[in-house]
Amino acid sequence: MNQIYWPSVFFLIFGALACGFAVAVLLTANIVRMAFYLVLSLAATAGLFFLAGQDFVGAMQLLIYVGGTLVLLIFGVMLTSQERFVSMKTMAGDWLIGLGAGAALLFLLVIAATSVPNWRGRDAAEVQQMQVEKTAAPIAMGLLGARVDQINEPAQANIVRSGYLLHFEIVSIHLLVVLIGAAYLARAKRKPASVPTT
């Protein structure tokens, strides 16, 4: 029997956590528990990102997604959590159709994912030989317009590689717009102070 490959064990643990809590999010009716399970699922996803060798994305996932977005989401849950909204049951018909469609979709996706030979894992010994790649700096260079991973490729004439500078700027502007928009939408509405009756 082959030796056990330990990173796979951690993959199984984190993958099971991510999938299990995702299913729990789906099955729970209580909105606060849903939020809690979602947090655990996304944190386990961050663990999977670390396992895939993408430290920077994993840390970002923890910082922005789990630490920022989900706190915001739970904030929303707490602002609107009244007795009657905490558990809203889904109708049985919805469940039936949903589960049927979901199972079909899942089957299709998994079959598609496993049918490409190149997407199966490398040889375990080969992976252990590979160097741990530093991820932060190449990503930063990419955002600033320099693709360090494509330097050695033959330069295609007349194609200017801009990296992701433009996208980065667009996202920045987008975030600014969202910030202002969200503040505008959620601002405290002043009730029209007792309309003067003239």
Binding site: F36, V39, A43, A59, L62, L63, V66, G67, G68, V71, I74
Partner: peptide, 8 residues
Amino acid sequence: AVLGLEVF
């Protein structure tokens, strides 16, 4: 990032 999770 991890210290931020304490808030949960």
